[in-house]
Design a protein around this nucleic acid. Structure first.
Lengths: 213, 213
DNA sequence: CCTACCGATCGGTAGG
DNA sequence: CCTACCGATCGGTAGG
């Protein structure tokens, strides 16, 4: 009970720290000092550095889901939900859900060249994330909200690239226009697949509303 | 003379290691062991860890310029050069110019949350890189190869996002289709600005060739 | 370029 | 959850 609360506070701090200084920068000693407890006391909650890192990744995943995916799932399936995921991702950078920018973008680039269980865990989450994006595109397609010939993997790849590009420009370059620029590119991409090739303007909304009814 | 050669071999190894394990993972002890020399012997070339890191970043920059920018500058200014930079970037990931993927994408995400001289050096290089991209877009515009109303910063942002997205999918997800997908998105973006709004097909090539003559 | 060090910090253990 | 440790490694120095 109380042990669980302590563990959650450790992980909250570990996630914040990892987003700022990298997952490898989360040392047991520093974490213990920040939280005013002994190294061995903190260590006992996890048993090894690797288990601490895996638990940190899992806690970061929970935070991402709570802040980006869950709110978007309150939108109707199809285009509204797809759009909400994209909008939610950009907002999540602006809101500094992780103080050092997207935990997973950072962890992806940190561990892509280091084989092992940590890399595997990050890859699994990122594969799952891109799959979620693809599924939301497929649902929008199946609802008739976007073109039936949309290239699902291609669109998911481009959207995710814009998310990461936004995080990069915002966090490293401190480019305050980056998020608006990313959002504009995202809207362009989404609008491009919404319109049908033969009749690009008129029948769109009608079609969506017919399906919804 | 010989000292300079030793220094270059240290930096070559440091750059490779940093692309795989991060710039902070380049320790003096490990570098010395890899190269079969003493820690203090290696250390003497730089004077501090920070100077070693700054020299490593500078060596990585040289390697990037030699492999991406310099070859592209042999193409004619304008669209050919802009296209060559994009193609060159994707090739540079595939050719594993840095064994762990793009050094600068990794370094950007590693240091964006850590204030200090290292972060400053990386930001300066990335600002310069995006500026190069913007300049090549401006030249293509001024040559009449792409639309005069192109949003320069917007296009540079989108292209760079696709580069980073390609590196992510290729290195972490080991998605072998990622580079082709990135290249397709890049060609789409470039084609979109090449065609004029009123006459999207015919006059394009003629216009380019007229200008070139 | 070397050997021989230094204090600080790393992950982890013993024993309570 | 603690104190008190451990060997290994960190960046860095002295002296040659």
């Amino acid at each position: 009970m109380k042990g669980e609360r302590t563990k959650q506070s450790i992980l909250h701090r570990a996630v914040d720290l990892a987003s700022l200084e990298g997952l490898e920068g989360v040392t047991i000693g520093r974490l213990a000092e920040d939280l005013g407890m002994s190294k061995s006391g903190l260590f006992a909650h996890f048993g090894s550095k690797e288990e601490l890192q895996l638990a940190t990744i899992s806690a970061a995943r929970d935070r991402f889901i709570d802040n980006v995916l869950r709110p978007a799932f309150e939108e109707a399936p199809g285009y509204p939900r797809l759009h909400a995921i994209c909008r939610g991702w950009i907002d999540y950078v602006e809101r500094k859900v992780f103080p050092g920018g997207c935990f997973f973008a950072a962890a992806s680039f940190e561990f892509d060249g280091r084989p092992g269980p940590i890399r595997d865990a990050i890859q699994k989450i990122m594969d799952g994330w891109v799959e979620s994006l693809e599924k939301s595109i497929i649902m929008a397609r199946d609802e008739g909200h976007i073109r039936s010939d949309v290239d699902v993997k291609q669109l998911a790849f481009e959207l995710n690239s814009l998310f990461f590009g936004a995080n990069f420009a915002y966090e490293l370059r401190t480019d305050r226009g980056a998020l608006a620029r990313a959002m504009r590119a995202i809207e362009d991409r989404l609008e491009a697949v919404r319109s049908s090739r033969t009749s690009p303007v008129a029948p769109r909304k009608t079609q969506i509303q017919r399906r919804r009814a």
